[in-house]
Nucleic acid binder design. Structure first.
Lengths: 149, 149
DNA sequence: TCCGATAGTTAAGGGTTGAAACTATTATAG
DNA sequence: CTATAATAGTTTCAACCCTTAACTATCGGA
């Protein structure tokens, strides 16, 4: 047991007192932006984000977001009927449907994301550069510990 | 603009690619532990945790978790009817109801939390002590930036 | 050709959520 | 000492999310 078990405990406690509340705060900010202006839910916003970042299928989205495929499928369906995402069947392997953002979807994502970014910037701008570096490093390690392999 | 705007962007990007997936992973782990053994949902687990940490009213729980009072109220209700939480009216100010864990609630929380902790320990034990310190620091700053004031 | 794997969907059921309106109780202003 | 405002908490409601299980369609290899 390399890292002292005590310190591990404290880190886990810190996780619990930080991640859920912070995520709820960010989430409700996104919700108010996205819902009021575009009638888009937070989960749908997530999906738009991931599609732009290169996830082009339901399964990929499910893997990345660690959510079940049916959940993704339903959300994508909503986005397609809203005209934010297009779904085109692959010709070579017809099991695949390639998801792409439409022009409207891109515009929506740009708007909501830049508003959210601005809000997050305001929050984070209370910190020094070294603090940001610290957050960057900490999150990177957290991601590594939980998401890798 | 002290911290370079660029680095701020990168930090925000890192946030988005880390927090939601990590939280989903942890969430589904808790869900499978708590649901299968005790028929308790993740949100109810949260509430038990916070009550033990000293939140003894619906409003406090709502503030801490950044969730609406009605949502808390309903979840607490479920926990009371499951016998995990007791609700007693304050004699001096009868608007208040003090929430406490019952013996069963404490036992449940102990079990689920220790299982979750074990699982998280396994994940985090791939890291060095300095990495843990880094996570601890980063999360602390994140909490400060988003939750304070 | 048949069987197993893969992509995705549908169906059903339980939970969550926030807004708005409501009750009950206490504090405060006049 | 009332009228009013503030606070704690609940109920209702409508929309939503997620999971499991079962299903369709398609592909790939034995």
């Amino acid at each position: 047991m390399y890292p002292s078990s005590d310190f591990l405990q404290q880190t886990i406690d810190r996780f619990w007192e930080t991640v859920p509340p912070v995520w709820n705060i960010v989430r409700s900010n996104v919700r108010s932006e996205a819902t009021q202006q575009f009638n888009i839910t937070v989960e749908q916003f997530h999906i738009l984000r991931h599609i732009r970042r290169g996830a082009h299928s339901v399964s990929e989205l499910a893997d990345i977001g660690h959510i079940s495929r049916p959940a993704i499928s339903q959300a994508v369906d909503a986005l397609v009927s809203k005209g934010m995402v297009s779904r085109t069947q692959n010709v070579n392997d017809r099991r695949y449907f390639r998801l792409e953002l439409t022009k409207e979807g891109t515009a929506l994502l740009d708007t909501v994301f830049s508003q959210t970014r601005q809000w997050m910037q305001a929050k984070l701008s209370t910190l020094e550069l070294t603090d940001l570096e610290s957050i960057m490093a900490g999150l990177g390690l957290l991601k590594k510990a939980f998401c890798d392999k």
